[in-house]
Computed example of a mutant assay.
Amino acid sequence: MHSEISIIGLFMQASILVKLVMLILLSMSVISWAMMLNRRKQFNYAQKSSGRFEKQFWSGVDLNKLYQECNARSDRLMGMEQIFHSGFKEYARLHKSGQREPDTILDSTYRSMRVSFSRELEELENQLPMLATIGSISPYIGLFGTVWGIMSAFIALGNVQQATLSMVAPGIAEALIATAMGLFAAIPAVIGYNRFTTRLARIENHYANFMEEFYGILYRQVNNQTRSES
């Protein structure tokens, strides 16, 4: 391929607006890949952390001891550990304050877990809307660059006496690169968004199941204590 019809050569020959469109699309592609790598790291860590904690939780360990271990590193908790820590912290606080009404204890504990549950999901959802935006608007930005480039090429043809294919081909080719770059930015972003939303749904279901199971344990514990005191 000759240098004058290479991608770099066509980019250098493009108009300022088309160049700007290409640079924007290239930036969006880099940003989307950076976000996908970051989300992948976060999701992997969340799943591994939850797997380790759940194994420890169901090993029969004393919940007070487990809470103390979590409390010692409360600034580094995430996911299932954070949900457990928030719930048990509220449960212990109410018991310490002398609260003996089962419904009050359980409702307040569940609300604390629910707040942590929402915050953990919100943290995982971070950057996904931006990824969806890049995937949806990139083709249109590329199409805008293509339309502008082709329009400029045909306007230039109007200033010559005899138009040939060799005169219009470079202008059209450089314009079409904008569409290609739009697809180059959009396709990975859409695939990444769909993949991460699927993983998020699984994690959300996992967290919700744990929260209900933990609530069931506290429910039985509170009711057993109420019966023994009565």
Rank of each mutant, 00 (worst) to 15 (best):
G142E: 09
M167N: 14
Q162R: 11
A173Y: 01
S152L: 11
N126R: 12
S152A: 14
E174I: 01
N159V: 03
G158I: 12
T179R: 00
V168S: 15
N159P: 00
M181A: 11
L143R: 05
I177R: 02
A153M: 11
G171I: 03
A178V: 03
Q161S: 13
T146S: 07
I177T: 00
I150H: 09
A153Y: 07
F154T: 00
L131T: 00
T133I: 08
T164D: 15
S166C: 04
G145P: 00
T133W: 06
F144Y: 13
S136K: 09
T179M: 04
I155M: 11
V147W: 12
N126I: 07
G145I: 05
I150T: 10
A175N: 03
G149S: 12
Q127S: 15
M181L: 08
L143P: 08
V168Q: 05
W148P: 00
G182I: 03
G145D: 06
M167G: 07
I134F: 05
G145L: 08
G158T: 11
S166E: 11
G135Y: 00
F144N: 06
S166K: 03
A175G: 12
L165Q: 06
S136F: 07
Q162N: 14
S136D: 14
G171P: 01
P139H: 09
L165T: 14
G149N: 06
W148E: 03
N159K: 15
F154N: 01
A180V: 14
F154S: 08
Q161Y: 04
V147H: 12
T146L: 05
G145N: 12
G158R: 05
S138G: 06
Y140N: 13
I141M: 08
M181D: 08
P170F: 10
P129H: 01
A175F: 10
I150M: 03
S138Y: 09
L165A: 15
I172W: 02
G171H: 02
I150L: 12
G182S: 11
I177E: 11
P170V: 14
V168F: 06
E174A: 10
I177L: 13
G145R: 04
G145Q: 06
A180G: 12
A132Q: 06
V147D: 09
V147P: 01
S152G: 04
G135A: 02
G142A: 02
Q162E: 06
A173H: 04
I141T: 01
N159L: 12
S138L: 10
M167A: 10
M167C: 07
A132N: 12
A180M: 12
F144V: 09
I134D: 09
P129Q: 00
